[in-house]
Design a protein around this nucleic acid. Structure first.
Lengths: 193, 193
DNA sequence: CCTAGTCTTGACCGCTTGGTACAATCTGCT
DNA sequence: AGCAGATTGTACCAAGCGGTCAAGACTAGG
């Protein structure tokens, strides 16, 4: 074997992710990605093949490390009301502290779905489905624990929570202020009591 | 005076709007706009000045003809629950019937705000604010009429309805199916009863 | 009927885009 | 030391980008 890569591939995906996350697929140029990763053009194409493939990898990494990781932690609490409150609270906090207003890469991509192909659509739909399932399971668990009223329909309530979360993430990109975001969180919890 | 323009400027804005609406600002090229409007490049620049100015005009037209028109009609009903239900129902219907999944141009642009300048941000924020005010007024009216429980906080409930609407529009772009959209509508109404 | 003045047309501009080719470079194994 | 083989930087590509411009087309007022 000749030699190792002189750059960390995962780190490069990470840095590319940041750019795609902030600017979206179309608005991100190869020049942006080269600058962000610090890698040379040739190396980047050698390592990833194309802009689109790099985007898919970045999206997958985001999905894995941001969404799945967060939901996993919260599910482990086995305390639905707290888990859902923490989820919304962390989204509010993230939105307020992020001056670039990157929002959520999954949501950003979801709104851009018609401009992407099946690969990307599948990842986004799976992520959304997963969120939906998370909410549904938490609601069902809360109902069995008695912390959530039994008359709430888990399926449609979960879908509403998902929509609220998505709406929150969109509005956080510059169309709403802190009071607005907090109100959304508050009403999300109101759906469960 | 020499002669009139040989094309209908408003119609051209309309056709440009369709493209921007479906593909977003970045992904729309001048070639797309020329094809959609059927106008020559020089004429288009002569009439609008730049791609960005055309976008702003298209966005303003959308805001005026789609959003303001719809809200105006609904407000005239003076029946809050019906008005809000009709609003959500029409969004669901529009989403289902639109095979291009264009969504809502205002929402699409809202998610893209960090890539736009102040002009665009102002239009989007004004539109969202207007929706918020619409909901708030309808809720207050419903409470004074007795059709909406007095314990609902108009401000935060309105913000939640806005977030649900935005979420609905995002998910309708390919991440959710009809059942999901209907569930969101149903829960929006549940917030008011 | 002619001239003034705007609109239209299509070629053209410089620049950036995503992507490729290749020679030079460097490291690990034998 | 020397070979093998992936990595590297750079030069390069065609295509597309947003935008400009000069010349022709055309109509209204004189």
């Amino acid at each position: 074997m000749p030699w190792q890569k002189s750059f960390d591939v995962e780190q490069a995906v990470d840095q590319a992710m940041e750019v795609f996350w902030a600017k979206g697929y179309e608005a991100t140029s190869m020049a942006d990605l080269l600058e962000a990763t610090g890698i040379n053009k040739g190396s980047l194409y050698n390592a990833f093949g194309s802009k689109k493939k790099l985007f898919v990898r970045a999206l997958l990494k985001y999905d894995r490390e941001q969404r799945q990781a967060a939901l996993g932690e919260l599910a482990d609490l086995e305390d639905p009301l707290t888990a859902i409150e923490l989820l919304f609270e962390s989204m509010v906090a993230k939105s307020l502290s992020d001056k670039d207003c990157k929002g959520c890469m999954l949501v950003n991509t979801a709104l851009d779905l018609p401009n992407h192909d099946g690969d990307v659509a599948r990842i986004v739909r799976a992520g959304m489905k997963d969120l939906d399932v998370f909410f549904r399971q938490q609601i069902a668990l809360g109902q069995s624990q008695g912390s959530i009223p039994p008359d709430r329909d888990p399926a449609s309530t979960a879908q509403a929570l998902l929509a609220l979360l998505v709406g929150l993430r969109v509005l956080a990109r510059g169309a709403s202020d802190e009071a607005g975001l907090r109100a959304i969180k508050q009403q999300a919890l109101a759906l469960l009591s």
